[in-house]
Amino acid sequence: MEYFLELFFSGLTRGSIYALIALGYTMVYGIIQLINFAHGEIYMIGAFVALIVAGVCTIYGLSGFAILILAAAIAAVYAAAYGYTLEKIAYRPLRGSPRLSPLISAIGMSIFLQNYVLLAQTPDFLPFPRLIPDFAFMDDVAHIIGSPELVILVTTLITMVLLTLLIKKTRVGKAMRATQQDLNMARLVGINVDRVISLTFVIGSVLAAIGGVLVASYIGQVSFYIGFLAGIKAFTAAVLGGIGSIPGAVLGGLIIGWSESFAAGYISSDYEDVLTFVLLVVILIVRPAGILGKVRKQKV
């Protein structure tokens, strides 16, 4: 039972990170029907910036929890800036071109950003400093759920609540929902669609960066390549839950997290990464709209 709980919580932790990244995919796809292939790279850049900030801070004598917050904040700012620039350079000039064009552009951008970090920083794994302390009150349950996992879960929960409030309650959120329903109609009623799209990228990037910082301090290492696999898994999560649907992305993330964690715990970890893809293929064949997605009829 304890082993089960341990796997349950590790799956929950992983799943919530996937959910954070998946939100970025789902929101962008909801509005402009584009798989933002470079989204995983934004997540990686977020983790890298956090590593750099944390590294510099530790060397110049700061320590502890303050660094984590500072690193996360700066990482979020940079990820947002990268997300914004990415949209402006690689996707905006391609509005209205055939569907394949922005997708290829996104793949190109993903390759570019990966290699940019590889060349600017290092091809090796860098150790990420342990920034989350072990809380004393967690001692009793530490063998099931550790302090880093708790921090991740709480942070994700807060982020999700804030995001939901933003989308459901604010003017900006309303504009985003309107744009998602019908881009041209939204433009007609006076919504600055370009700004909404930019904002969507910025929000998605911030979420990805938060995920990146959390994962880096949880796993304890960062490399230029982490964005690729995490990106695909998060995308699978978004598809599983129903792309375009925000609760769907969270649900999908959790399902993937759990299935990975249980498969690794009870079966074997060799095929851990394959499992996600098999899941993806099965969903797409059985129910392409995803669990919570609406089946949209194609109109001619």
Partner: peptide, 9 residues
Amino acid sequence: PLLVVRVNT
């Protein structure tokens, strides 16, 4: 941060 700073942790 990426091009100027390089930390060795």
